[in-house]
């Protein structure tokens, strides 16, 4: 049913898969996600849609093999099938003409930036991209982002490519140089999104982040993905995943993301001992 049509390794431990999921492809919009399961015993894994082709009935997903579930996903071959795919889930991005949009992606978070940058550019925005990664080898989708941006800036933690440091440094210098920025989209690790929010806050630049808290059903039923936004409890799955960065309680989000670290390590040990299934 949800057959894997193609697999590509983009960077160490980072893969792109094209999956046959016509009902998702028909309805998908930038900013939305799917939930998939690899097998009958699998976790529900939320992944943001990177691209979709209604004509072919396919969707594109990018993921990093970090935990048991993503490792299992990464071990599948072309023509194998995913057990479940449901979507599109979540609210689409609010795509409209802002003027100049800065789109910031960190690590595998560059992947969900691509459809947003593409859609923003399509409606006439000037898109400036800032891409960050730990090192050059882990940097993904640079060419694709170039196609929809007037300028692409790069930062790496170790300086192996572009600016040595963080994406937020580049954003700061863009603002200081007097670039007029109408909106900032930032997707990546929560600490990165928090840093971006802090840079734009005093300049009152509208900043949108796509949050990735722990999720189970992804349809508003469990509340695992609850986040504090402007002092109110919101569910990232149905109220988001995108929120006003200046309203998000990132400290709480980061703590909640750590809730199952011990279990995740246990699961990794288990899979090393017993193999996948």
């Amino acid at each position: 049913m949800y057959k894997i049509v193609a697999i590509q390794t983009l960077a160490p431990q980072t893969k792109l898969i094209i999956v046959h999921a016509p009902e998702v492809a028909e309805k998908a919009q930038a900013g939305q996600f799917v939930i998939l399961r690899v097998d009958e015993r699998g976790e529900r894994i939320p992944l943001t849609l990177v691209d979709w082709k209604p004509k072919n009935g396919t969707i594109v997903l990018i993921f990093q093999e970090v935990g048991v579930s993503t490792k299992k996903l990464g071990s599948l071959n072309v023509n194998e099938e995913l057990f479940d795919v449901v979507g599109p889930l979540g609210n689409p991005s609010d795509i409209k003409y802002y003027g100049t949009a800065v789109v910031i992606g960190g690590g595998v978070g560059i992947a969900p930036c691509l459809p947003i940058a593409t859609a923003l550019q399509k409606v006439g925005n000037e898109v400036i991209s800032i891409l960050g990664a730990r090192n050059e080898k882990l940097l993904i989708l640079e060419e694709e982002m170039k196609r929809v941006s007037t300028k692409v800036h790069i930062s790496t933690d170790d300086g192996s490519k572009g600016h040595k440091g963080f994406v937020s440094d580049i954003l700061k210098s863009l603002i200081e140089k007097g670039n007029s920025i109408d909106v900032v989209y930032a997707i990546g690790p929560s600490v990165m999104m928090r840093a971006v929010a802090e840079v734009t806050r005093s300049h009152k630049i509208k900043t949108i982040v796509s949050l990735n808290p722990i999720m189970v059903d992804g349809m508003g039923m469990c509340g695992a993905c609850r986040v504090s936004v402007g002092g109110k409890v919101k569910f990232a799955c149905v109220d988001g995943p995108e929120f006003d960065a200046h309203q998000v309680d990132f400290d709480q989000l980061i703590k909640r993301q750590q809730a199952f670290i011990a279990e995740e390590n246990l699961a990794l040990e288990h899979i090393e001992k017993h193999g996948g299934n």
Partner: peptide, 14 residues
């Protein structure tokens, strides 16, 4: 998600 059978099933519960 049958997390009572974790880690045989992948979804954890603490």
């Amino acid at each position: 998600m049958k997390s009572y059978a974790f880690p045989e099933y992948d979804t954890p519960i603490r």
